[in-house]
């Protein structure tokens, strides 16, 4: 019994230890500036935001310096390692006429921002996510070719119910009989968000789907697809809402037009907030141990972190579901055959 307890204690301490390994040295670094020796906000924000380096742990090999790709009218395209922005004490330095400040790169002389197409942490996560999706679903597709006319097996049988769920429970009921045209986009969207959310929960991973640039891009795609598929009834409903008194139409019109944009805006904000907030909660709980400098607090917060992590797994699925569901709904509204009386 005591040995069992000991093992349990050690297991419970693991997340805290991991966090300690990941963050502790940086805490000492910022000790001089932050009150109480530990700037929680700085650490957490550093984790959830994008970066030009991928920090796994402190030490010589703990940081992956990602490539910087920049373009300016003055200097053209340039590619170099982000290591060049750091000296041996991890202080920011100018390099080759470029200066980095708060993650943004400027021309050192004029202070003009450059077009930054660097492979940042999130871009790298994006690549990993894309490659993983391609590998997984190519394998699933291969399963269908191999088990033609037979029951699904292996990875194929794992993903089949999810694919069928997206098709039959999300897309079909919301879009109606035109659904097949939108299914590839919606399936890609669903699995991109799901995989991104789950990858983001891995220790050391970047916060891809909790980045507002990513959610904005996805929301814009949904916006474009929705409005380009809009039929006469859809636009008629927006510009000349049927069954509304004449004068009221002038009130309704701006509301409808604002509605066009609030839909994708809500998609963007919802996913960004849900995922980022989850990460912030997890990191805050882990940070408690360092704020209180106490193993007991670390133990308790580790247990809570474990619990929140499970919730985050749930949230990962729910957010993928919700984004796909609302996209389907919006497309469904745009292509529906309205029949007002």
């Amino acid at each position: 019994m005591p040995s069992f307890l000991l093992i349990f204690k050690r297991l419970a301490l693991l997340p805290a230890l991991a966090a300690a390994l990941l963050y502790a040295p940086r805490l000492y670094a910022s000790e001089s500036t932050a009150a109480g020796g530990f700037d929680v906000g700085e650490v957490i924000l550093h984790h959830v935001k994008d970066d030009h380096v991928w920090h796994f742990w402190d030490g010589h090999y703990g940081t992956l310096y990602l490539p910087v790709i920049v373009y300016t009218k003055e200097k053209g395209w340039e590619i170099f390692s982000s290591r060049n922005f750091y000296d041996e004490h991890h202080n920011l330095v100018e390099y080759n006429g470029y200066r980095m400040e708060h993650g943004h790169i400027y021309l050192a002389e004029t202070g003009k921002p450059v077009l930054d197409l660097s492979i940042t942490k999130n871009v790298a996560m994006l690549f990993i996510n894309a490659v993983l999706l391609l590998a997984v679903f190519a394998a699933v597709a291969r399963g269908y070719a191999q088990n033609k006319g037979r029951a699904p097996r292996g990875i194929q049988s794992f993903f089949e119910p999810i694919i069928v769920f997206v098709r039959d429970e999300i897309v079909k009921p919301n879009i109606g009989h035109h659904y097949e045209k939108y299914l590839p986009y919606l399936l890609s969207l669903f699995f991109f968000i799901l995989f991104g959310n789950l990858l983001g929960l891995l220790p050391g991973a970047g916060n891809l789907t909790g980045n507002i640039a990513v959610t904005m891009t996805l929301a814009v795609f949904t916006f474009l697809i929705t409005n380009f598929s809009g039929n006469k009834a859809y636009w008629g409903h927006i510009f000349w809402t049927p069954g509304v008194p004449f004068l009221l139409r002038f009130v309704i019109l701006p509301v409808e037009i604002v509605g066009l944009f609030t839909k994708p805006f809500s998609l963007m904000i919802r996913l960004f907030v849900a995922i980022t907030a989850g990460h912030i909660v997890l990191l805050s709980l882990i940070s408690l141990a360092f704020i209180f400098q106490s193993i007991a607090v670390g133990l308790v917060s580790s247990l809570i972190v474990l619990f929140i992590n499970l919730i985050e797994l749930l949230v990962a699925g729910i957010q993928a579901y919700v984004f796909t569901l609302f996209t389907s709904l919006y497309i469904g509204m745009a292509v529906a055959d309205h029949d007002h009386h």
């Binding site: 959830v48 930054d116 940042t120 871009v123 980045n211 507002i212």
Partner: peptide, 20 residues
Amino acid sequence: MDLLTPGTGLIIWQAFVFLL
């Protein structure tokens, strides 16, 4: 990089990679 302002580079990468 800031939390609430989307980065141009990531938007471009995301659009390109996601479409692909």
